[in-house]
C-alpha cells in the first residue's frame, strides 16, 4: 500500500498528521500576508477528480486576521462534522488568477478508501478505474 495512513491525500500537508488549529491559523496568516482570498469548501465525495467542492459561505475577501477564517472553518466543522473540509487560497494577481493553496482541515473518522474497478471492453481489453466505497451511499449519508 502506498498510503500507509489509509486516508485520502489531496492538496497540501495531506501526508502529515492533521493540522492543529494553531497550525491552520499560521497557514492562513501566510496566505493573508500574500493578499490571497480564502474560502472554505466541503464535500463527501473523495474521488480525486472531484475538483469542485461545495463552497461554505462566500469567499472571504478583505480579511486582515486569521480569526475570521478560523471561525468559518469551525462553523463548517459544526455543520458537516463527517465531511471533508478544505481551505482554499485564491490569488487574484493578473496572470495567476487561480487557487494557490488547498489543504484539508477536516475528514471523516473512518475512510473506507477506494476499490479498483475493471471494465472489460472490446477485444478483451481492460479499463481500470477507481471507485470510492463511500459513494455507494447517497450524498449526505456516506460517512
Amino acid at each position: 500500500m502506498t498510503n500507509p495512513n489509509g486516508i485520502v491525500t489531496q492538496g497540501q500537508f495531506s501526508f502529515l498528521p492533521a493540522l492543529t488549529d494553531a497550525q491552520i491559523t499560521a497557514q492562513i496568516k501566510y496566505a493573508l500576508g500574500k493578499g490571497w482570498a480564502l474560502s472554505v469548501e466541503y464535500t463527501d465525495d473523495p474521488h480525486p477528480r472531484n475538483t469542485y467542492w461545495e463552497m461554505f459561505g462566500a469567499p472571504m475577501f478583505d480579511l486582515k486576521d486569521p480569526a475570521g477564517i478560523l471561525m468559518e472553518i469551525n462553523n463548517c466543522r459544526k455543520t458537516f462534522p463527517h465531511h471533508y473540509i478544505r481551505v482554499m487560497a485564491f490569488s487574484s494577481v493578473r496572470g495567476v488568477e487561480s487557487p494557490t493553496m488547498s489543504y484539508i482541515v477536516n475528514r471523516p473518522k473512518h475512510e473506507p478508501g477506494f476499490g479498483l474497478v475493471r471494465q472489460e471492453t472490446d477485444g478483451r481489453n481492460i479499463r481500470y478505474t477507481i471507485h470510492a466505497y463511500a459513494t455507494d451511499k447517497p450524498e449526505g449519508e456516506r460517512y
Binding site: A58, M60, K64, D65, P66, G68, I69, M71, E72
Partner: peptide, 12 residues
C-alpha cells in the same frame, strides 16, 4: 451573513 461578514473583516 451580512453581519458575520463584517465581523470577519473586523476580526483581530
Amino acid at each position: 451573513p451580512k453581519t458575520k461578514e463584517v465581523i470577519k473583516k473586523a476580526m483581530g
